[in-house]
Amino acid sequence: MSESDIQVAHIAKLARLQLTPEEEAEFQTEIEAILSYVDKLQNLNVDGVEPTAHATQITNVIRDDVSGKTQDREKTLANAPDVADEVLLKVPAVLGGAH
């Protein structure tokens, strides 16, 4: 059973990658090959098996609500590619307003 019917163009959009047509074609072929190998997973019987999300089985790693050091704004702005009004990080206009 093959599960892979990947549309690289669509997935690249989800991942915010602007592929060239050449890249798109190349990745489509390569990733299909990888997926057809990965698809051997479909043969494995995993009924009743719990998924592993972490390599260790620790729980409740929680910190106390105590404030610590913040980063100097100069450093934040120095790393930013573009700055607005001397205090904000600047990006081109966000279309469509809020979330």
Binding site: R63, D65, V66, S67, G68, T70, Q71, T76, V87, L89
Partner: peptide
């Protein structure tokens, strides 16, 4: 209304100067 942010120790304050309650984690 905690003292600090959810996943880092930056203050959870309304009305501070822009980009002052930040650290590498919340950035």
């Amino acid at each position: 209304n905690t003292a600090t942010k959810m996943f880092c120790a930056c203050p959870n304050n309304f009305g501070s100067e822009p980009n002052t309650n930040v650290c590498p984690i919340c950035l």
